[in-house]
Computed example of a mutant assay.
Amino acid sequence: MNKTVVKTMEILKLFIDHERLTLQEMVELLQMPKTSVYRMAQSLVELGFLHKTNDYYQLGLTLLSFGMLVAERLDLRQIALPIMQQLKEDTKEAVNLVIRDGDEAIYIEKVDTSEPVRVYTKVGRRAPLYAGACPRILLTFMERDEQQRYIDRVQLVKIAKNTIVQRDTLRDRIEQDRKRQYTVSYSELEDYSAAIAVPIFNHEGKAAAGLSVAGPEHRFSPEAIERMVPMLKQAAQQISTQLGFSRKG
């Protein structure tokens, strides 16, 4: 690789862990000659990749523009599909991907199970955010103020035999699920169906989507859930990472 490009990248990488640095601090961290660091830093300032205020350098707005373009052009479905296919192989259950659309969740991708008994779901299906594991995971990780406003105004309608229709019950369930980082539902959107869901986070650390495995209730025993949750979380983490999510950030 081109040495100048590599060294330039090393300078930029310093600002992953440091909000701002002086020239001397960069020199000490990189263990490079001061004149070389100065020339590269000044070039990065001229290009807008770094910004200098008094004696301090920090990341410039050009990088923000590039980052926003990358985030906008990432195709969630394209990233998620191969991971979903592998999750289906691992769990033997259907896998669904949902995103929020106002006060509803919309199913944007699915991978059907090969099992003869399955739960019917189709791309384009909509569901209220309070009902079912996959829609409710979006509500669970919504910003707190917005979440509270939603719960206060939404009409909780019974869709299936176990749909949550009490606000206090919904709040309690959300708190429990937020702590354990996943949610489970039994017969909330469709009788005798079950699902487990986890959040997918974007580059801003916000829940951008929900990922679930779903099937008939009899295949979702406590033992089965304990087995599938780590697989589901790992798959969601893979997708989140490709969307730019970093737990450190």
Results as ranks from 00 to 15, higher is better:
residue 115 E to T: 09
residue 233 K to M: 13
residue 125 R to E: 13
residue 110 K to V: 07
residue 172 D to F: 04
residue 61 L to S: 11
residue 118 R to H: 12
residue 247 R to F: 12
residue 26 M to T: 03
residue 156 L to F: 07
residue 51 H to D: 13
residue 181 Q to T: 12
residue 66 F to Y: 09
residue 35 T to N: 15
residue 247 R to G: 04
residue 102 G to V: 08
residue 174 I to M: 00
residue 73 R to M: 12
residue 66 F to G: 05
residue 21 L to M: 14
residue 138 L to A: 08
residue 92 K to A: 11
residue 153 R to A: 14
residue 156 L to N: 05
residue 151 I to M: 02
residue 247 R to V: 13
residue 177 D to T: 13
residue 154 V to W: 04
residue 69 L to D: 12
residue 76 L to S: 12
residue 195 A to Q: 01
residue 188 E to L: 07
residue 188 E to G: 11
residue 137 I to Q: 04
residue 90 D to Y: 09
residue 68 M to D: 14
residue 80 A to Q: 05
residue 60 G to S: 02
residue 230 P to N: 06
residue 207 A to I: 06
residue 156 L to I: 11
residue 139 L to M: 00
residue 100 R to P: 08
residue 33 P to H: 11
residue 246 S to K: 14
residue 184 V to M: 07
residue 194 A to H: 05
residue 45 V to D: 09
residue 50 L to K: 00
residue 109 E to F: 03
residue 224 A to P: 07
residue 210 G to C: 12
residue 166 Q to L: 10
residue 240 S to G: 06
residue 5 V to S: 05
residue 41 A to K: 03
residue 57 Y to Q: 02
residue 92 K to C: 05
residue 133 A to G: 14
residue 197 A to K: 08
residue 59 L to H: 03
residue 214 A to V: 12
residue 234 Q to G: 03
residue 193 S to R: 04
residue 38 Y to T: 13
residue 231 M to P: 00
residue 51 H to E: 15
residue 127 A to W: 12
residue 176 Q to H: 08
residue 62 T to R: 15
residue 85 Q to F: 06
residue 63 L to G: 04
residue 195 A to M: 09
residue 199 P to D: 08
residue 200 I to F: 07
residue 243 L to R: 13
residue 42 Q to K: 11
residue 107 Y to G: 02
residue 50 L to C: 06
residue 140 T to V: 10
residue 128 P to D: 08
residue 174 I to V: 10
residue 185 S to Q: 00
residue 136 R to K: 15
residue 16 I to F: 08
residue 28 E to C: 08
residue 67 G to V: 02
residue 41 A to Q: 02
residue 226 E to C: 01
residue 9 M to L: 15
residue 41 A to C: 05
residue 111 V to Q: 09
residue 206 K to E: 13
residue 227 R to E: 11
residue 192 Y to I: 05
residue 239 I to F: 04
residue 27 V to Y: 06
residue 156 L to W: 05
residue 31 Q to Y: 06
residue 140 T to D: 11
residue 33 P to G: 10
